[in-house]
Write a protein that binds this DNA or RNA. Structure first.
Lengths: 159, 159
DNA sequence: CTTACTGCAAACCATTTGCACGATC
DNA sequence: GATCGTGCAAATGGTTTGCAGTAAG
């Protein structure tokens, strides 16, 4: 990513913060910048260790809280299923999962078309693929109506 | 699932245990049975509470350890990313993730074809879909060669 | 009779919460 | 100056580990 791209993203981010009524703090900017500069889908801890170098007073809590905020204003998201208690599936037949971001339920669904998706050549050649699945995230039927009846839903991807 | 189906699965499971040199214990059978009877992708804790009803002496540790064993002999798997520290992604462009089950790294890849997958009607109608992604799991390039050079790899999906 | 499995307790790690101080608007 | 954000400390929840007793092969 070029310096220009980064500056643009930082500007957009600051604008989003203002729109959301969030204050622009050095910590917030630093966490967001570190996140978009990373391509390793970092955990809070990884970012924290990194940020501490340039920002010795930053705390892990702030990193955690800031990352949560970033997902809430829609400038970041949580990598598939991470941060949830480990869940097991004993059904080895080909199927897909939908996860409700509100209640955490994982619901099976089936779709022929999904099973037939080919794996890209560059992956097939250099990696060993053990599992392939389509993953959907959103609101399940009951959470959808629950949130509708409450008015403005505040979607919290990490819940 | 019919009683016949369950009995078949239990028999296959016992055979797999023997092949893997694992002892057939009442706890192991109970955990596996509870898992395949559940369609809610349970966590260890959920299974534990359920199992305790019929098996008051079972411990949460045994459930945890047994579930790990089940993934190792290939009769169960861990639901996408669950059980890992929460990881964040600040890249909102359409892309897919490959997760290495050995080192935990999450690697981005791109594939036009994946972006165009339609969401099944029954999901589209009853759920709110906020994110759609193809998720691959396996061994990355470096772990692949590392494990090759070590001889028989013992794949541990949860690591 | 040997080896592996289980249950318990303690340790560990990631995440959350309450609170007082400090910074932003 | 009011409100929100931060850092600290403690609490919580999930998972792992070491160990001694117990059960399976």
């Amino acid at each position: 990513m070029s310096d220009g791209d980064i500056n643009t993203k930082m500007a957009v981010f600051q604008e989003k913060c203002r729109q959301a009524g969030l204050k622009i703090t050095p910590q917030r900017l630093a966490v967001y910048r570190a996140l978009i500069l990373s391509n390793e889908h970092p955990s809070a801890d990884v970012l924290y260790r990194q940020l501490r170098r340039d920002f010795p007073s930053i705390s892990l809590d702030t990193v955690n809280r800031t990352l949560l905020t970033l997902t809430q204003i829609g400038v970041a998201f949580v990598v598939e299923g991470s941060g949830q208690a480990r869940r097991y599936d004993g059904n080895l037949e080909n199927h897909q999962h939908f996860r409700c971001v509100n209640c955490g339920k994982v619901i099976d669904f089936h779709c022929e078309q999904f099973n037939d998706i080919p794996i890209p050549d560059d992956i097939e050649e250099n990696f060993v693929v053990l599992r392939k699945t389509v993953y959907l995230e959103g609101l399940c039927q009951s959470c959808k109506s629950e949130l509708n009846s409450q008015g403005a839903p505040r979607l919290n991807i990490t819940k």
